[in-house]
C-alpha cells in the first residue's frame, strides 16, 4: 500500500508561472511563497483549504454531522448541495492523504455515520477537491449517474461474509467419507517400496475433493441467503484458508432476516469459521469511474 500515493514536492508549481505579466504581483509572490512550502501554508491560511469528499447522498437541505472528519484535527462534516443531491465533505489542508490506519478509518467512520440516516454512494478513499465549486461541478457533471445509483441503492445495506476453514480438519473429514482416498492412504502407509506415485495421486485426489467440498459449501451458503438479499457478489478468496469472500446487498427491512439466516448457516456448518461484517456502504455494488479534467478554457 505504501507508495501508492506520493506526496507532491513543493517546487513544481513554480514552473507554471512563466507568464507573470497577466497576474498581479500579489498573486505571484503568493505563488512563490507557497510553492516553497505548501505544507506550512496549508496549515496557516484558510484560503488554502480544500475539501475531502466522503460520499454522495440525496439531500435537499444542508446537513451537519459534527466534527468527525479526516485529519489530525477532525473537521466539521457537512454537505455541498446541488439539486437534491449532496456531497458529504469536510475542510482539509490541500494534501494527498496516505491510506494510513487513522485516515482510512476516519473515511469509513464518516460514511458509517451518514449511512445511519441516509442512503450513500461511497467515494473511494482520498478524494480532495480544491473548492466548493469543483465539487458542485462534480455533482452537476455526474448528476444522472449519481441520481440513478442513489435511487437504486435506496434503503439498502451491504454486508460482508467471509468463510474460512481449516484444511487439515477438512482433509480428515474427506478421508472419513471418501472410500477411494482412504484406501489410497492406507496403501501408502502399508506399502514397502517407493510410495511416490501413490502419494502424488493421493495429493491430487485430496485437492480435488477439497475443491469440490468448498464449491458445494459455497453454493449452498449462497443459495440459503438468496431470498433475504437483493444481490450478491463473490470476490476472490484471500489466502488458502478462505473458501468464500462475498458481499451481499440487503434491504434495510430485511436486515434482521438476513442476520438470522447467517447465524443459522453458522450453526449448521460448525466446522467453518464465519467472518460477518457490516453494515457497509454499498462499495461492492456501486462502481462509478470518473475522469476529471481541468476546464480547457476557464475564461
Amino acid at each position: 500500500m505504501k507508495g501508492r500515493t506520493k506526496r507532491q514536492a513543493g517546487p513544481k508549481p513554480a514552473r507554471g508561472r512563466s507568464a507573470p505579466g497577466k497576474t498581479g504581483d500579489l498573486a505571484a509572490s503568493r505563488a512563490k511563497r507557497s510553492s516553497r512550502r505548501p505544507r506550512a501554508e496549508a496549515k496557516g491560511g484558510a484560503d488554502n483549504l480544500g475539501k475531502y469528499v466522503y460520499c454522495v447522498v440525496s439531500a435537499t437541505e444542508p446537513l451537519r454531522f459534527g466534527a468527525i472528519g479526516i485529519g489530525a484535527k477532525p473537521a466539521e462534516v457537512q454537505t455541498v448541495n446541488y439539486k437534491g443531491i449532496a456531497a458529504i465533505v469536510s475542510d482539509t489542508p490541500l494534501e494527498v492523504y496516505d491510506p494510513t490506519r487513522e485516515n482510512v478509518l476516519a473515511h469509513e467512520r464518516v460514511n458509517e455515520t451518514v449511512m445511519r440516516t441516509h442512503t450513500v454512494i461511497p467515494m473511494s478513499f482520498g478524494a480532495v477537491f480544491k473548492t466548493r465549486e469543483d465539487i458542485i461541478e462534480l455533482l452537476r457533471g455526474a448528476y444522472n449517474a449519481f441520481h440513478d445509483v442513489l435511487s437504486k441503492m435506496e434503503d439498502k445495506l451491504e454486508f460482508g461474509l467471509k468463510v474460512l476453514w481449516d484444511r487439515d480438519v477438512m482433509i480428515r473429514e474427506i478421508e472419513r467419507e471418501d472410500e477411494d482416498i482412504r484406501r489410497l492412504k492406507n496403501e501408502i502407509a502399508s506399502q514397502k517400496g517407493s510410495t511416490y506415485f501413490a502419494r502424488v495421486q493421493y495429493g491430487r485426489m485430496a485437492d480435488a475433493a477439497l475443491q469440490n467440498l468448498a464449491d458445494r459449501y459455497v453454493a449452498d451458503i449462497f443459495a440459503q441467503l438468496r431470498d433475504v438479499c437483493v444481490a450478491s457478489r463473490a470476490n476472490k478468496p484471500i489466502g488458502d484458508k478462505m473458501i468464500m469472500n462475498a458481499a451481499f446487498l440487503v434491504a434495510r427491512n430485511q436486515e434482521a432476516a438476513f442476520d438470522a439466516r447467517v447465524k443459522k448457516i453458522g450453526a449448521q456448518y460448525h466446522k467453518l469459521t464465519f467472518k460477518y461484517t457490516g453494515p457497509w456502504p454499498p462499495y461492492n455494488f456501486v462502481n462509478i469511474r470518473l475522469k476529471l479534467e481541468r476546464a480547457k478554457d476557464a475564461q
Binding site: 506526496r7 507532491q8 513544481k12 508549481p13 507554471g16 508561472r17 503568493r30 505563488a31 507557497s34 510553492s35 505548501p38 488554502n48 480544500g50 490541500l94 494534501e95 494527498v96 480532495v128 477537491f129 480544491k130 465549486e133 469543483d134 461541478e137 462534480l138 452537476r140 457533471g141 455526474a142 470518473l290 475522469k291 476529471l292 479534467e293 481541468r294 476546464a295 478554457d297 476557464a298
Partner: peptide, 15 residues
C-alpha cells in the same frame, strides 16, 4: 487536483 498546480490553476474541473 491537490498537488502539482497548488496555486497557479484556478480553472474549474470538469467531468
Amino acid at each position: 487536483l491537490v498537488g502539482i498546480d497548488l496555486i497557479t490553476v484556478e480553472a474549474r474541473i470538469v467531468v
